[in-house]
Design a protein around this nucleic acid. Sequence first.
DNA 1: CGGTCGTTTGAAGTGGTTCAAGCCTTGTGG
DNA 2: CCACAAGGCTTGAACCACTTCAAACGACCG
Lengths: 232, 232
Amino acid sequence: MSQLRAGRRPVLECAARRLVHEGGLAEPQARALVESIRGGVRYRAASPISPTSSAPGLVWIVDGWCCEFRALFDGRRQIFSFAIPGDMVRVDPAADRTFAALTAVECVDVAQILGCGLEPERSALLTPLLRAVVADGERRYDHLSRLSRRAAISRTAHLLVELHDRLDDVGLVTGDAFPLPLTQEHIADALGLSPAQVNRSLRSLREVGAATLRFGRATGFDRERLSAFAAD
Amino acid sequence: MSQLRAGRRPVLECAARRLVHEGGLAEPQARALVESIRGGVRYRAASPISPTSSAPGLVWIVDGWCCEFRALFDGRRQIFSFAIPGDMVRVDPAADRTFAALTAVECVDVAQILGCGLEPERSALLTPLLRAVVADGERRYDHLSRLSRRAAISRTAHLLVELHDRLDDVGLVTGDAFPLPLTQEHIADALGLSPAQVNRSLRSLREVGAATLRFGRATGFDRERLSAFAAD
DNA sequence: CGGTCGTTTGAAGTGGTTCAAGCCTTGTGG
DNA sequence: CCACAAGGCTTGAACCACTTCAAACGACCG
């Protein structure tokens, strides 16, 4: 509880930062908009995220992390993407994919906000929305080339760099550290590796001082060094 | 030359079929529309496809096959998708991706057709266009789960089933056979496998009578049997 | 303070890669 | 019409990265 409250302040800045950077909104207005949509739908960790209707919808994740995955034949799953605080994602209940909360998640239905009609807020939302959808599509290509014909350590480093950069965009990187509430199994499911191999890759990266993942945080993050591993 | 002329008839039906099935156009009108856009841009095999402007554009492939890929560090490449006759694809020159012709290709800029303004044709194009873009996005997810944590033979079978079904949609499947102008290296680059392993997978599939790839055609195609391999 | 979940590590097995050689098919020029 | 070259297909043998399984450890939560 107190943890939730303590996390509130910077979290607000996450969603608001999108509006400022990509929507062209002034900071106080962005804050106000985000304040006004407070009290969106809440999900607890590990529960599936579904839109209000059965039609495809757009969800703005005000706080928390999600992952988008498909359950496979043998009980395994393929994680397609991770969503971080401030992200907007397309949720399609008809598709053979699921969004699930990795942490406690607070989100709102974008269609509802747009329907409310206040004009400056509408247009401030549309640009980030469009960018989010496009960037999301682009990341799918990156993820594809990440999975294919790359060594385990290269995949791991590449994913870490992507997450770092995205978190940096919304102000969640402080110095050489950032939150990373993923288990090694999540990373394994995203990268198509066994958890054991993810562990070994992370150990290698830790030993050369590229990054350390522990307790849901990345520390000692050396972007340049990681990029070198990712490039190979 | 005579080969091109001989291939003209069924090829026209490919593009027109899209308009009939997805655009709700009557057959003669669909034929007329496709006739009217004849003489689009032509590319020879192995040349890159680029839109007329430097902005992202939509290209309608009237005839021929393409692949969308990214060149990798070591000279290898990752193929993201194959485009078949009648497909509409988004081409973005700014993105780190290339469309290349696999065969001789004839295509038109969709924006130009839409700009011409004839209303019944406009709306007949818009629905297939929208569907193509959505379906294309969906296939990226399939491709992702195809690459990850699957045996070589499963990936191969899965790709063959996808191509079969798409070709069937545009009437290019005749009985248990269809054209497949891909080298084993193309398949390898798409599936993240070595050409040798693709060859072994294809041999296995051939030996059990699931499909035979030879001379740019698939024959003896047993969709059910292949799906069984793909599912695993 | 015990149970649960995540991490860490070793050892054995395996599926795929790599490399290299031979073959087949197709296209080209004499 | 044949000969040759080029590109793609096929296959074997050695190697290696990753998987699988199992066991121990550590952190967190009631």
